[in-house]
Design a protein around this nucleic acid. Sequence first.
DNA 1: AATTGTTTACAAGGTG
DNA 2: CACCTTGTAAACAATT
Length: 319
Amino acid sequence: MPRPGRNTYSDQKPPYSYISLTAMAIQSSQEKMLPLSEIYKFIMDRFPYYRENTQRWQNSLRHNLSFNDCFIKIPRRPDQPGKGSFWALHPSCGDMFENGSFLRRRKRFKVMKSDHLAPTKPSDAAQYLQQQAKLRLSALAASGTHLPQMSTYNLGVSQTSTFKHPFAIENIIAREYKMPGGLAFSTMQPMSAAYPLHNQLTSVGSHIGTGWPHMYSSSMIDTTTPISMGNSDYSVSAYGVPLKPLCHGGQTLPAIPVPIKPTPTALPGLPTHIPAILSNSSPSLSPTSPQTGTSQSSPATPSETLTSTPTALLSVAVH
DNA sequence: AATTGTTTACAAGGTG
DNA sequence: CACCTTGTAAACAATT
């Protein structure tokens, strides 16, 4: 039911469920986990529809977080002060969405007792994610411009295919880095200029094209130089109907790259006790910068700056 | 007090 | 038609 006087595309309700939106937000973060407030922010930044009636949809979203097993709560560590826990995707719910599209979920994710592929207990998963976050950040910090070793890990884990569904998180989130001329950097994220990865990321997304009216890149919102969305972005023939994949390596492959998804054998360099390597540098590795939570004028969180680069890059590398 | 998180309940719509 | 998913409301507890 469209509201009267609200006819712009951007004000229409996005075709995503709260689960999808939340998964997007979480996936977009560097650490693959976000506090509730950041999830709110992500959604409101990108989907104008959700800038209204916040009480209603935020209640629904919280309900979803609690109700669905695919979301796990990760307690803050002492060095991560703030309200509420972090929320992450359960490591085993990587293929929750059909073809990686956030438009449609395969089935309800339920934690199974005999799930040997991943930690099932929230506490295990939480620990695992914390480790992943640390590893990711330390790898990025240490490697400068060239590929962090995380990428090789990703190769092993989120192997899947080169095809990324138009509604897969990379393609959705990738617009953050997209500039009209193919220039890949965000105006509000100075750091990103130092990341050549974004060019590759852009090249991934840019050959899939069409407008996506429900969504804003954060650059559009937070700066006065909106990015033209006219020409390209997703290969969507109509509202919610993706065109044929340009290339596909399998029909049912989970295109949501959930790099946190462990495999029994694919983690050669990933013992369950990584902190040994990382314990020294932990203070600078807190998953979210302390001041991002409440700041309205500085939306360029480190998380967003590095958003999804490892996996996006991976899709290029594999290709 | 505000935010965050849990839980129950119900309605609507989709699917097999 | 039964079942499932999703969205919404609401009550309530816990936390900051």
